[in-house]
Amino acid sequence: MLVFAISDKGGTGRSVTSTNIAYRHALQGNDACYLDFDFGSPTAGAIFSVSSVARGTRAGGLHEYLRGELTEPQRIDVWAESDREGLRVKPPGAGRLVLLPGSEGGGELSTVDDEMANRCVQLFSRLEEEFDLCVVDVSAGRSFTAEMILQATVRLPAVPFRWLVYHRWTRQHIIAADGLVNGADGLLDVGARFGHDPEVLRERIRFVRTAVLESEAAELVGLRDEQRAWLSAYDGELRELAGRHGVGRTAMLGKVPLDPILQWREQLISDEDVLATKIANAETAAAFEDLAKKIMDDSAWEGL
């Protein structure tokens, strides 16, 4: 399964959520890999705590591979190379967790040619042969990278893929997420141009809400009653807005609660962070766990 993670705006927590999905999926006993296609800012290495590639790799990154400068991109075994003690040992029963870093200082793709799309096809095809889940972190907004992926997936008709569109629970984010999928030059529009059936493609796209404040969240305890009442009313408005924009409950795969730790540092949330040091909320880990299961679960992706 190929999963493409995208968001219209920056700062949605796309990368941190996607890395955690890959991590949880590996913990659930599957082989997972993570491709850093956020070429403008390839920082997945930092989230996995692999400092040698914290801002992308100097040699062997995905950029160079797509440009045809090498035959295979570099791979990093997170269980072996992470600097975080808790990650450096592969838990019993866990699958492989491999990072394919972007190139340091690579920059966004400025164009996509046929050769590049071919190399992308070859890369996806090889990875899909050996990994249960390949998470591809695509840079925010409309980009040549997204275009290249839409081209590549048309050429791999037998390879299953899904898109996750991340957005925060705000008015602007909801409208933007809708635009990224349904708007002009959005995923469906561009996908159709390359030969995807828009209706089939739509069924392969789900939204993920990030940094969500639930009404019973601990963070709301200190608020005044007026604030709480306002939040509740506005939440209703947003729900109505989301419904109108096709970003409502039925098109949503899951949501990730607001967690202070992720506001300060983008990192993998391990069980140790929840149970031992208690720096992370159990709900956050549970949300990632849930997403990691649903991403492969066909019943969560049945037609609306």
Binding site: G60, L70, T71, E72, P73, Q74, R75, A80
Partner: peptide, 12 residues
């Protein structure tokens, strides 16, 4: 050798 037999060189 670092891992998975990948990054196997820059040839083509």
């Amino acid at each position: 050798d670092r891992l998975s037999g990948a990054s196997a060189g820059r040839t083509r």
